[in-house]
Structures are given as C-alpha cells and as structure tokens.
C-alpha cells in the first residue's frame, strides 16, 4: 500500500515537472517566470513531504524571491513580456528535445540500475525539525565550516562582480577619472 509520504511526494513531484515543462511551453515570459516559481515551490513542498522541513522552507522562500526578481527582469528586458505577439524565442528545437529526453532517460535508467545502499530500517524515524536544524547548525559550525564560509564569500564575490559588470561604461570611466 502507498504511504501518505509517497503519495504527497509523487503529487508534488508531478506538479514540479508539469510546471517545469510549462516554463518552455507558454509564449508569455511572465507566465514562464510564474510557472518556474510554482515548479520550485512544488519542489519545496516535496522537501517538506520528505521531512526536510528546514530545506523545504528555505527553498520556497529563496525561490519566491528569485523568481519575483526574474519576473521584474522579464518585464524590463523583453520586447513582448506578455507574449501577445506570439514570438518564438527558441532554436535547434529537435536537437534540444532529443538531448532533454536522452538526459532524462539516462538519469532514470541510472536511478533504476544503480545498487543504492540499504537505507535505515524504519523510514519514519527521522529527527524532528528542531533536531534537524540543531544538527545542521552543529555541522555548519563544525567540519563543514570552511565549505559554508566559502559559499558565503562566493555569493559576496558574485554580487560585487555582477554589480561591477552592470555599471554603465560611462559612469565607470567617470569614476576612473575622478
């Protein structure tokens, strides 16, 4: 018999896939951004179904912010963000579909064929949300501290680099002169 966990995982998984596919089906950029937001949110809900509460909430919060920014950029940059002109913004479609299907099938075959190690005997016995956050905190400030710090510095570097790239050339040269 299918457990509730399996049911909700499959439900949110299918939702994530359907909305993920909708990103590239619609001709409206705004709808694409919203579809990606729903796909990522469904993924966050799937994490919650897998009892990874912290990661699930983090995923939903992060993606809601990211996709909102993406939607704003869509409106800023697109000639036709509403998709009213029915513009086609794709190329090499046949090759892309082939590559996408091949990648998905290959990954699925590996998932079936691989000899995964045996998991815990009772799957329901996972630490509570509070205990998980505590254990993650211990992990972050313990042996994974360097990795965590590196991730932080990487984001900071990316923010500075992105800002530097985005500054208009005129302002850049003026700042250089002064």
């Amino acid at each position: 018999m299918i457990s509730w966990q399996t049911f909700f995982m499959a439900f949110f998984g299918i939702a994530a896939i359907v909305f993920g596919a909708a990103v590239f089906v619609t001709s409206s950029m705004m709808r694409s951004a919203l579809a990606l937001l729903f796909s990522q949110t469904a993924l966050g809900a799937m994490f919650l179904a897998m009892q990874a509460e912290f990661l699930g909430v983090l995923q939903i919060m992060m993606m809601a912010t990211e996709m909102s920014i993406m939607a704003i950029f869509m409106v800023m940059f697109m000639m036709d963000p509403g998709g009213l002109g029915d513009m086609d913004m794709s190329h090499q479609k046949r090759l892309s579909i082939l590559a996408g299907v091949a990648a998905a099938v290959f990954s699925a075959v590996i998932a079936i064929a691989a000899h995964w190690p045996a998991g815990p005997e009772t799957l329901s016995e996972v630490a509570s949300a509070g205990a998980q956050v505590r254990a993650l905190g211990v992990e972050l400030l313990g042996r994974s501290m360097l990795i965590f710090e590196t991730a932080g510095v990487t984001i900071l570097t990316a923010m500075i680099a992105a800002t530097a790239v985005a500054i208009p050339p005129l302002q850049r040269s003026k700042a250089h002169e002064s």
Binding site: I17, M46, G100, A103, A108, A111
Partner: peptide, 13 residues
Amino acid sequence: FTGAALFGIGVYG
C-alpha cells in the same frame, strides 16, 4: 524520477 525529469526539461530549456 522527479529529478531526472526536471534535469531533462532543464537541458531542453
């Protein structure tokens, strides 16, 4: 399987 499907859609995109 969900991961594989999302990966495939992403590669296509």
